[in-house]
């Protein structure tokens, strides 16, 4: 952790001429490539893949940047002692608070990941962070407003918000007994446990004038850390969409349970931002049962291809699996119960 850059690494990036040369080479390579690739050489499937990949990325990237900025500002401006004054001691109440935290930080499923990681570095309890991670993509003003716009004040809106909260808080509470080092990746854990050097550089050792730049640069580091997961996830989602036939998928959804599973699978594959998925769900309302549309609206924001990959930047692999399976099982149980007992 404390090793400085090696001299050779220092050397090349301190020489502007070399840096410029590398940049020019890179640009020349791109121009050459572009000139030599005929427009349609990619094939139709390839072109479709690229367009869908770019569209998921371009749609999601402002939200990831916003989340990274929130994270950067928390790092520099929020003192951990102040944070702890507001964190409930009881893990269950901490999970409850985590479930509602999205009302304060309106982030969707891309932005929530860097914020959660930063809060964990500040020592946030596991249960609260997981509840926040799962609930915030639905329980925030923007998503509630878009769900209202699509479905109005009805059972769909209340059920979406209520069950998302319930699932998030339950999953959060399940991590009550776990220890952070079993759950989180080393670089997401509380700074103070694994470093010998005391480097709590919030506020204390940064002059006030430099804090803004420090926050912004920290946001940049955070973005670069998380963006690779977003990009890999967007690629997988685009590949699935290019290869999997949607009519075949939708035709599976005839029975009570299979229609719920179908829309959950679709939510996972589409990886559409939670701020707009309500409008998309509207298109299914006549061909699917209300409980399967609810499953789409509850499960999709918590887990989809790109957010599952982004979880891997915060949690250990085994835990990512739990974070996919637990919401999946709970959403399935709730919506199957509703469809059998309320005939929804």
């Amino acid at each position: 952790m404390t090793t400085l850059d090696t001299p050779s690494a220092q050397l090349w990036y301190h020489q502007p001429a070399k840096r410029l040369a590398i940049l020019l080479l890179f640009l020349a390579a791109i121009i050459l490539l572009r000139a030599n690739i005929p427009v349609d050489s990619l094939g139709d499937k390839g072109q479709t893949f690229v367009t869908i990949f770019q569209s998921i990325f371009i749609e999601a990237v402002p939200f990831l940047l916003a989340g990274s900025l929130v994270s950067g500002f928390i790092e520099v401006f929020v003192n951990r002692d102040i944070l702890f004054r507001f964190v409930p001691r009881n893990p269950f109440f901490a999970a409850l608070a985590g479930g509602g935290l999205g009302l304060l930080f309106p982030v969707c499923e891309c932005g929530v990941v860097p914020v959660t990681r930063r809060l964990y570095q500040k020592g946030l309890p596991l249960s609260m962070g997981i509840a926040f991670l799962l609930a915030a993509p639905v329980i925030n003003p923007v998503v509630i407003a878009s769900t209202y716009a699509a479905f109005g004040w009805g059972p769909m809106l209340w059920a979406r918000v209520g069950f998302s909260f319930l699932i998030a808080v339950t999953v959060g509470t399940l991590f009550y007994f776990a220890r952070p080092e079993e759950i989180l990746r080393p670089d997401s854990q509380d700074d103070h446990d694994h470093c010998e050097v005391d480097h709590d550089h919030e506020i204390v050792d940064i002059p006030p004038g430099a804090r803004l730049w420090e926050a912004l640069a920290t946001a940049g580091d955070d973005f670069l850390d998380m963006a690779r997961y977003l990009i890999a996830g967007s690629m997988m989602a685009a590949a699935m969409q290019t290869l999997v036939s949607q009519p075949t998928l939708l035709a599976l959804g005839n029975g009570t349970i299979s229609s719920i599973l179908t829309l959950m699978m679709l939510a996972f594959v589409l990886s559409v931002c939670s701020t707009v998925d309500a409008f998309l769900a509207l298109a299914f309302i006549n061909s699917f049962t209300p409980s399967s549309v609810l499953a789409f609206l509850v499960f999709g924001p918590m887990v989809d291809i790109k957010s599952a990959l982004m979880f891997m930047g915060v949690f250990q692999r085994r835990v990512v699996l739990y974070l996919i399976l637990l919401p999946l099982m709970m959403t399935l149980t709730i919506t199957v119960y509703l469809s059998l007992n309320v005939s929804w």
Binding site: A66, D221, F223
Partner: peptide, 26 residues
């Protein structure tokens, strides 16, 4: 606009503030 501002911010970041303390694993 945000990316350009964030990108430029590295120029003004104080070097000692984060020395030996790189959390990123990029």
């Amino acid at each position: 606009v945000g990316f350009i501002i964030v990108g430029l911010s590295y120029r003004y970041r104080l070097p000692n503030a984060h020395e030996g303390h790189e959390h990123g694993n990029l």
